[in-house]
């Protein structure tokens, strides 16, 4: 089981797709008719997650912490407050926790029970983050998982996995790559990948 199976249900054929569209449209109609939801609000929510809230927000946080030690200290003590000081279009809610990668320790975030993820700074999670392979394996064989992401860590690097089992949310602060001395915050932010802020990637230098 596994890969082929997953491929099928993440990319259903056209008849399944049509069936889901119809089923969701019917539910939306019932809820609109009863006055529980408003269509234009739903449009706006979709647009917010497609265009406004995403990993570029997290990348700004990371780049700022690489260039501003005082910001980094605030981020590591209260990530919600530090993130909100950057003035994102949508505010960051309670209990964001930033965890710092160092040469000694690599952090990796998972939600084994569902799909908890720091939406406000990374956007909606990718399919792999919500998938059974990642949720099952990240806590027992993170090195093998990281290898599949092309991340090979030194043998003696400690790996710390954070299972998001409550309403706290985790953002990994990746290591700044060498060769970026003197770079602007914007240029640094462009290097920061979503996966590196989950711990499933490293930020590569120029």
């Amino acid at each position: 089981m596994g890969d082929d199976h997953k491929h099928d249900h993440e990319h259903p054929d056209h008849s399944q797709l049509g069936e889901m569209q119809a089923r969701v449209r019917a539910l939306e109609s019932i809820l609109t008719e009863k006055g529980y939801v408003d269509r234009s609000t739903l449009d706006l929510i979709v647009d917010t997650y497609e265009t406004k809230v995403g990993p570029r927000n997290g990348a700004r946080i990371v780049a700022r912490s690489w260039t501003d030690p005082e910001f980094k200290a605030r981020l590591l003590s209260d990530a919600t407050a530090a993130a909100n000081s950057l003035g994102f279009p949508n505010p960051v809610g309670a209990h964001l926790i930033a965890v710092e990668n160092t040469p000694q320790t690599h952090n990796l975030v998972v939600c084994t029970l569902c799909s908890c993820y720091p939406w406000e700074v990374l956007g909606l999670p990718p399919v792999w983050y919500k998938s059974a392979p990642y949720r099952s394996r990240a806590v027992i064989e993170p090195r093998a998982v990281l290898a599949e992401f092309g991340v090979e860590l030194p043998e003696n690097t400690r790996i710390r996995v954070w299972d998001s089992t409550a309403e706290t949310r985790f953002l990994v602060l990746p290591m700044r790559p060498p060769g970026t001395e003197g770079w602007s915050e914007q240029r640094l932010a462009d290097l920061v990948t979503r996966d590196s802020m989950i711990g499933a990637g490293l930020v590569r230098g120029p």
Binding site: K6, E10, T112, V127, S136, F149
Partner: peptide
């Protein structure tokens, strides 16, 4: 699911859209 075996590799999608 934590610690279960048998689900296979973690498959990533390049340029994954927010919604499929």
């Amino acid at each position: 699911m934590g610690g279960m075996h048998g689900f296979g590799r973690v498959e990533r999608e390049v340029n994954e859209p927010v919604f499929h």
